[in-house]
Nucleic acid binder design. Sequence first.
DNA 1: GTCTATATGTTGATAGAC
DNA 2: GTCTATCAACATATAGAC
Lengths: 195, 195
Amino acid sequence: MAENSTRTAYTADTLLAVTVRVFNERGYDGTSMEDLSRAAGISKSSIYHHVRGKEELLRLAVGRALDALFAILEEPAAVTGRPVDRLEHVVRRTAEVLIDELPYVTLLLRVRGNTATEEWALERRRDFDHRVAELVKAAAAEGELRPDVEPRLATRLLFGMINSIAEWYRPGSRTADGVAEAVVHLAFDGLRAEP
Amino acid sequence: MAENSTRTAYTADTLLAVTVRVFNERGYDGTSMEDLSRAAGISKSSIYHHVRGKEELLRLAVGRALDALFAILEEPAAVTGRPVDRLEHVVRRTAEVLIDELPYVTLLLRVRGNTATEEWALERRRDFDHRVAELVKAAAAEGELRPDVEPRLATRLLFGMINSIAEWYRPGSRTADGVAEAVVHLAFDGLRAEP
DNA sequence: GTCTATATGTTGATAGAC
DNA sequence: GTCTATCAACATATAGAC
């Protein structure tokens, strides 16, 4: 607040937006602080004024993605109704959130667990997946899913399908709603035409 | 040939197996030649006797994965019969090959295109995806798939599901056949129980 | 086919001026 | 909040002996 420079003047948050873009372009390990400084238009040492280091930038970015995903599980339609309907809601919303927070979720999905921060992110992801797997199990127990579906395996393939959106989605090409709808339709009804 | 040392004595191929394991554990960018030399039990400079450098190791590894995938498209069941059956064959076999060549395909799927080698790998992957997309289009044109399925989008989600196997599959837990069967079933028939 | 030693560049991070 | 200057550590790769 109370600034008068014509532009720039980063906060941790605006710097994060630039950072995440570069991390996604070059990979976290493939991105140097020099790369970040060039992309942000400030010197390397200026970055250290905003954050403690490169790993903190990663933590802030994936934390944002994780918070957005966990918020889905608190939505009314995710906690009330038939398990299969709650599952459908979570699947649709996960696809939507992935698109709304595309760069942050993309980065999250590429984390492999080599540092403490990455391990923490993986742990939270596993927790999210586990809670959705419980929903799949509940729907299966109610007879709302095909009886030969293995809940654990189905959950993994389901997330595989959803998460792969990050590999190709670019804003403008399709709406988040349209993609989410296609995911729900394919996941619940499959590709094959009715006999 | 004509060696008498009690063990080791690398060829480019056996060195590659070690290398790919480390690349997958630490990431390509996160792996140093020092890491590779420690994992292989030989010095850094010995590695340069077998390959020109780090990038050549990547090229050899992803090349192996790509060759295995393209071979699927030449199989008799992939070139003869109804499009929907050919598609089902390719989907099943892609899942199986992914598991058979797990470390190599895993590495391929993580490539992002920052070097010439990675760009070349992405290009071949796109070509493979494109050829499967043609199969989806053909099946849709024959009325063998749901009419509201967009071929291009469906192909992407399909590969998302298949490729995600690399994220969690570990030998011994399940058979390749079982996983491939689940993929085919989920992709073609969906999760939902019959009404 | 392997080694030790080394050249040469890049990395993440800090010190301290403005 | 930004900068220039600098550091110690680590990177890929090469030279040349055995």
